[in-house]
Amino acid sequence: MGKNSGQIDIFNNIIFEKLIPKDHLLIKIDSIIDFSFVYDLVKDRYSDIGRESKDPVMMLKICLLEYLYTLSDPEVVARVRTDVAFRWFLGLNIEDDVPDDTTISHFRINRLGDEYFDNFFNDYSFAEKP
């Protein structure tokens, strides 16, 4: 299971600080929710075989962006490519690659699954599951 370093370099940090308002919805969400629970939620759905996957926290945050902004998989990919607030929220530097829409749907269907996906976006009961 891949994990982003979460480190945004100083150049990107300056850009993000200049362009993203301090009261932006994504900054508020990031300050309230610790998304590290996602690693435990999906750890049994990953294998040690093959290439490293995309960071599941980033992938769940992409699903959250879709939900919040009513975006499809291709639409969220396009927004992540151009929206600095989206990139900051996902922990991506300006030059980092963006997952494609099929990677997002694969994560939602095969890694997260219907039950956890529905619980996260409807009643947050996922935190009580083993």
Rank of each mutant, 00 (worst) to 15 (best):
F86G: 04
P130C: 08
D83R: 15
D73N: 15
R87M: 02
E17R: 01
G113I: 12
P21E: 14
R87E: 01
K28N: 12
F120H: 04
L112W: 04
F35L: 07
D114I: 13
V80Y: 04
D96N: 15
N93Y: 02
V76P: 04
D30N: 15
V80I: 15
R79S: 13
L60D: 02
T103G: 00
K18H: 12
W88H: 08
L92T: 06
L65S: 01
F107T: 05
I15V: 14
F86M: 14
I8P: 03
N13I: 10
F16Y: 15
K22M: 13
A85W: 07
L90E: 08
Y69M: 12
I29M: 04
L64C: 08
I20F: 00
T102E: 11
I14K: 15
I104H: 02
D96A: 10
K28Q: 14
Y46H: 09
P56G: 01
F107R: 08
H106K: 15
G91M: 11
D100T: 10
R108N: 06
G113P: 10
T70V: 15
D23R: 11
F126A: 06
N12R: 06
F117V: 02
L41M: 11
I62Y: 00
S36D: 12
N12G: 12
R111G: 06
K54W: 14
I109S: 12
I15H: 03
I49A: 03
K43T: 11
R108T: 05
I27K: 15
V42W: 00
F86K: 12
T82E: 14
S5I: 08
L60N: 06
F117E: 04
E52P: 05
M59V: 05
A85V: 06
L65T: 05
H106S: 13
D9F: 08
D100M: 10
V77F: 05
L71A: 08
F89I: 09
D96T: 09
V38F: 05
I29T: 03
F107L: 13
F37P: 06
L65N: 02
D100G: 10
V42Q: 04
P74M: 09
L112C: 07
I62P: 02
L90R: 03
Q7T: 12
V98E: 05
D48T: 14
V42T: 11
I15A: 07
K18N: 14
E75Y: 03
K18T: 14
K54R: 11
I33D: 03
F117T: 09
Y46M: 02
K54V: 01
K28V: 07
A85M: 09
Q7I: 15
I15L: 13
N122Q: 14
N93K: 14
L68A: 06
S72V: 05
K61Q: 07
V84H: 13
I32H: 08
Y39I: 08
L19T: 14
L68P: 04
D48M: 06
E115V: 15
I20D: 00
R111D: 00
I32S: 04
S31H: 07
F107W: 12
E17Y: 00
Y116W: 09
F120C: 08
A78W: 05
L92P: 08
L25M: 11
L90M: 10
K129C: 02
